[in-house]
Design a protein around this nucleic acid. Structure first.
Lengths: 164, 164
DNA sequence: TATTGTTATACTCTATAACTATA
DNA sequence: TATAGTTATAGAGTATAACAATA
């Protein structure tokens, strides 16, 4: 790509493409906004996730829920929802779906019969074990433009920002 | 909050709260994933945006579209969609809404009568001018935990990551 | 034939309020 | 009276495919 002939053609026809190319779009004050930049970065990361893990039938949200239950066996549904910034009403539907799919088990808490304690089933544990390496690989590929030091810095700053 | 009496009570009843508190939730491998951290940070930033700009009837997506049109008068709809990682079919609906609301004007391109060139109306320009200071303030408040150097670093790394 | 944009549609995600059952 | 979770529902956001008009 980018032969001498191509370059010559571009030089010869500077006014041919008057329209704005995607790469030349100006974002003005937007790149100063962390909210905007974080959103663009997230879109890029999720694109990669979906492309690499579509076949496994797992999405970013479900993955984070399953991993967090695995790391905190018996975690209550409301605590899980608050930790991942998901509304209780939405978490109820997700957990019911995961229960129907035999990935998660809901146990009534002995100390409070209103509460559910969540556990991964064997199937859930296997799914996490199988998906996690692919997720890590996808994440690494999507961030390959950053060197290890930059990656560490980025994770540290995002952790500080999101309070984790 | 946190009186001596409270502390004494906590010391006397260490087994009382056996349940996991939100702050103690373990995320295991998730914080190593840039995709997860970027998602958590984005949720936090958007929460702040909605809280601070709900009254103005503006959302993060609409704001970025209006600002980008303002910075690139005459930008084509498809170029705008690609630049902001929005599907053409979805951008069509958004731009029609903005046109109906008299914030954006669609002009048929002279060089290609299939294409729309987008411009802000006076109303659109005024909305941007009025909202932008509030958006900046909200962004600054939501990122106040980071010092200026950290903010600069974070923006630089996110820009590199998202290719802007 | 390829490209620009539109329509229809479906699915996910998110937000709110009213509800139940326990505490 | 408060809390854990559910249900219903509405609104955004996103993805795909079929389509019209123009190049």
């Amino acid at each position: 790509m980018g032969s001498d002939i191509d370059d010559a053609l571009v030089d010869d026809a500077p006014a041919k493409r008057e329209e704005l190319a995607v790469a030349d779009v100006q974002f003005g004050p937007l790149p100063e906004l962390v909210g905007f930049m974080v959103r663009q970065a997230q879109l890029r990361m999720f694109e990669a996730f979906y492309a690499d893990l579509a076949d496994d039938g797992i999405r970013p949200g479900l993955a984070s829920i399953l991993v967090t239950i695995g790391e905190n066996p018996g975690i209550r549904q409301g605590v899980l929802a608050d930790a991942l910034r998901i509304k209780w009403s939405n978490m109820a539907k997700i957990v019911r779906y995961l229960d129907d799919d035999a990935l998660v088990e809901r146990r009534v808490a002995k100390s409070d019969r209103r509460a559910f304690e969540l556990h991964l089933t064997d199937r859930g544990r296997k799914l996490v074990a199988r998906a996690l390496p692919k997720i890590r690989a996808s994440d690494r590929r999507a961030t390959a433009i950053l060197d290890p030091d930059e990656l560490t810095t980025l994770r540290t700053l995002l952790a500080k920002l999101s309070g984790i």
